[in-house]
Lab assay of single mutants.
Amino acid sequence: TFTSIVTTNPDFGGFEFYVEAGQQFDDSAYEEAYGVSVPSAVVEEMNAKAAQLKDGEWLNVSHE
């Protein structure tokens, strides 16, 4: 299960995956970082959410 939350205070020191406002979700980078295949429906969902981000916001993507 993939989830996401919007934050204005990303923790770059941890093992977190963020999408910056104005960027798209990079499923290849996510797969490389976590060894998890990302279904195309999830990629579309995360890109739709990322498109709604305002300046200074980040989308924190995770999975269980």
Rank of each mutant, 00 (worst) to 15 (best):
T1Y: 13
T1P: 09
T1C: 15
T1L: 10
T1S: 12
T1Q: 12
T1R: 14
F2N: 00
F2G: 00
F2K: 00
F2C: 04
F2T: 01
T3Y: 14
T3W: 14
T3D: 05
S4P: 03
S4G: 12
S4W: 15
S4A: 12
S4K: 04
I5P: 04
I5T: 14
I5D: 07
I5M: 13
I5Y: 15
I5N: 11
V6S: 05
V6H: 02
V6E: 03
V6R: 01
V6M: 06
V6F: 05
V6C: 09
V6I: 12
V6T: 07
V6D: 02
T7M: 07
T7V: 13
T7R: 00
T7D: 04
T7F: 05
T7L: 07
T7Y: 05
T8E: 08
T8G: 06
T8N: 09
T8A: 08
T8M: 10
T8F: 07
T8Y: 08
T8D: 08
N9Y: 08
N9I: 08
N9D: 11
N9C: 14
N9E: 12
P10I: 05
P10S: 03
P10G: 03
P10T: 03
D11S: 10
D11H: 11
D11G: 07
D11Y: 11
D11M: 10
F12W: 12
F12H: 09
F12R: 07
F12S: 06
F12E: 05
F12Q: 06
F12C: 08
F12G: 05
F12M: 08
G13P: 05
G13R: 10
G13Y: 12
G13D: 12
G14Q: 08
G14I: 08
G14Y: 06
G14N: 09
G14C: 12
G14H: 08
G14S: 14
G14M: 08
F15D: 13
F15I: 11
F15Y: 12
F15E: 10
E16F: 15
E16R: 14
E16H: 15
E16M: 14
E16K: 15
E16N: 15
F17Q: 02
F17A: 02
F17R: 01
F17H: 04
F17L: 03
F17M: 02
F17C: 06
Y18F: 08
Y18S: 03
Y18D: 00
Y18T: 02
Y18A: 02
Y18E: 00
Y18K: 04
Y18L: 07
Y18V: 04
V19Q: 01
V19H: 02
V19E: 02
V19W: 02
V19L: 07
V19M: 06
E20T: 09
E20Y: 13
E20M: 14
E20L: 07
E20I: 07
E20H: 11
E20N: 07
A21G: 04
A21C: 08
A21K: 12
A21V: 07
G22F: 06
G22Y: 06
G22T: 04
G22E: 03
G22L: 04
G22D: 02
Q23E: 09
Q23A: 12
Q23D: 08
Q23S: 11
Q23N: 09
Q24M: 14
Q24N: 11
Q24P: 11
Q24C: 10
Q24K: 12
Q24L: 14
Q24H: 10
Q24F: 13
F25C: 03
F25H: 02
F25P: 00
D26W: 07
D26R: 06
D26Y: 06
D26F: 05
D26G: 04
D26L: 07
D26P: 03
D26V: 06
D26M: 06
D27F: 15
D27G: 15
D27R: 15
D27S: 15
S28F: 11
S28C: 12
S28G: 11
S28R: 15
S28D: 09
S28Y: 11
A29Q: 08
A29Y: 07
Y30D: 00
Y30C: 03
Y30S: 00
Y30F: 14
Y30E: 00
Y30N: 00
Y30P: 00
Y30R: 01
Y30A: 01
Y30K: 01
E31Q: 13
E31A: 13
E31W: 14
E31D: 04
E31F: 15
E31M: 13
E32L: 15
E32R: 15
E32K: 15
E32W: 11
E32S: 13
A33G: 04
A33N: 08
A33I: 15
A33V: 10
A33Q: 14
A33H: 11
A33E: 07
A33S: 08
A33L: 15
Y34M: 08
Y34A: 02
Y34H: 09
Y34R: 07
Y34F: 14
Y34C: 07
Y34P: 00
Y34Q: 04
G35V: 01
G35P: 00
G35T: 04
G35C: 09
G35W: 05
G35I: 02
G35D: 05
G35L: 05
G35Q: 07
V36C: 07
V36L: 08
V36M: 09
V36H: 05
V36G: 01
V36W: 06
V36A: 04
S37P: 11
S37R: 15
S37I: 13
S37H: 14
V38K: 00
V38N: 00
V38R: 00
P39V: 03
P39S: 06
P39T: 04
P39I: 03
P39M: 03
S40C: 13
S40V: 12
S40K: 15
S40Y: 13
A41C: 12
A41Y: 14
A41D: 11
A41F: 13
A41T: 10
A41Q: 11
A41L: 10
A41H: 14
A41W: 15
V42M: 05
V42Y: 05
V42Q: 02
V42G: 01
V42A: 05
V42F: 07
V43K: 10
V43M: 06
V43L: 08
V43C: 06
V43F: 06
E44F: 08
E44N: 10
E44D: 12
E44I: 12
E44T: 10
E44Y: 07
E44M: 11
E45I: 11
E45V: 08
E45S: 09
E45G: 05
E45N: 06
E45Y: 10
M46G: 00
M46Q: 02
M46W: 10
M46V: 10
M46F: 10
N47T: 09
N47M: 06
N47G: 03
A48E: 11
A48Q: 11
A48S: 09
A48M: 13
A48N: 10
A48K: 12
A48C: 10
K49W: 07
K49L: 14
K49M: 11
K49G: 05
K49H: 07
K49D: 04
K49F: 08
K49R: 13
K49Q: 10
A50D: 01
A50F: 00
A50K: 01
A50S: 06
A51H: 08
A51D: 06
A51N: 07
A51Y: 05
A51P: 04
A51M: 11
A51Q: 10
Q52H: 08
Q52D: 09
Q52P: 00
Q52F: 09
Q52Y: 08
Q52A: 13
L53Y: 01
L53G: 02
L53T: 01
L53W: 03
L53V: 00
L53F: 00
L53N: 02
K54P: 01
K54T: 08
K54G: 07
K54D: 05
K54M: 09
K54C: 06
K54V: 08
D55K: 14
D55H: 13
D55T: 14
D55A: 14
D55I: 14
D55S: 12
D55V: 13
D55N: 12
D55Y: 11
D55R: 14
D55Q: 14
D55G: 09
G56N: 07
G56L: 03
G56V: 02
E57L: 00
E57M: 04
E57Q: 09
E57H: 05
E57T: 04
E57R: 02
E57V: 01
E57W: 05
W58T: 02
W58K: 01
W58N: 00
W58R: 02
W58S: 02
W58C: 04
W58E: 01
W58F: 09
W58Q: 01
W58P: 00
L59T: 01
L59C: 02
L59V: 01
L59P: 00
L59A: 01
L59W: 02
L59Q: 01
N60A: 15
N60L: 15
N60E: 10
N60C: 15
N60F: 14
N60W: 15
N60D: 03
N60K: 15
V61W: 02
V61N: 00
V61I: 13
V61S: 00
V61R: 02
V61E: 01
V61F: 04
S62R: 15
S62W: 15
S62P: 03
S62C: 10
S62E: 03
S62V: 10
S62A: 08
S62N: 08
S62F: 14
H63E: 02
H63W: 12
H63M: 07
H63T: 04
H63G: 03
H63D: 03
E64R: 13
E64S: 14
E64I: 14
E64T: 15
E64A: 13
